[in-house]
Write a protein that binds this DNA or RNA. Structure first.
Lengths: 92, 92
DNA sequence: TTATGCGCTACATATTGTGTAGCGTCAATC
DNA sequence: GATTGACGCTACACAATATGTAGCGCATAA
């Protein structure tokens, strides 16, 4: 339940998704990619994700850890489904 | 991005997960299963999920729609991974 | 009629997120 | 060697969201 609750926090899923698209990625770049999320919120979520050892801050920016990569990969089918679903949903 | 943002709201993932475990399920039962979430929050999330047509309120309680079932199924690998992950994480 | 369980609302309080400004650090440039 | 720019990140006032508790209106059953 721990992880499920963590993922349920605002921006967490989005951050993992963005990082899965391309990483490493700087703090400021992440902000830009996430609809200019406030730095406060971004930092809080990054802290959470670092504590969970899903991401880490390296030389050239934030990066997915091994486990972060594994998790992100599981989100891909979800994302694909979501895109299909969005198409059908909008056309109502 | 729509669905991803919706799933990122607090309790949304948890609710889908709980319903995927067993449904239909009454409002009060859902509360109990979700750590006694406040009725206000529960109702807000249920509204969201109904608008997204992922769940619906039937005779005998809240139930997953076809699409809700499809989505929940995609969460299963995630949940399995999370359980494994939690084991390794706690033993640190 | 009373009792019970239902979905849900009201409302005051607490927690969380937002938006903007800017700090301290460092590497490159003039 | 002072300046500029980008970095991660913090401060803080304000807004949005969640929480906890009480209870409403409705239905079915005893």
């Amino acid at each position: 339940m721990v992880l499920l609750d963590a993922l349920g926090k605002r921006w967490t899923l989005r951050l993992l998704w963005e990082l899965n698209q391309s990483w490493p990625c700087t703090f400021r770049e992440l902000r830009a990619r996430c609809d200019d999320i406030s730095p406060t919120s971004l930092n809080n979520r990054l802290k959470d994700l670092r504590e969970l050892k899903l991401i880490e801050l390296g030389e050239s920016g934030y990066a997915l850890t091994e486990q972060g990569q594994a998790l992100s990969r599981l989100l891909e089918p979800l994302d694909r489904w979501a895109n299909q679903w969005a198409k059908n949903f909008d056309s109502n």
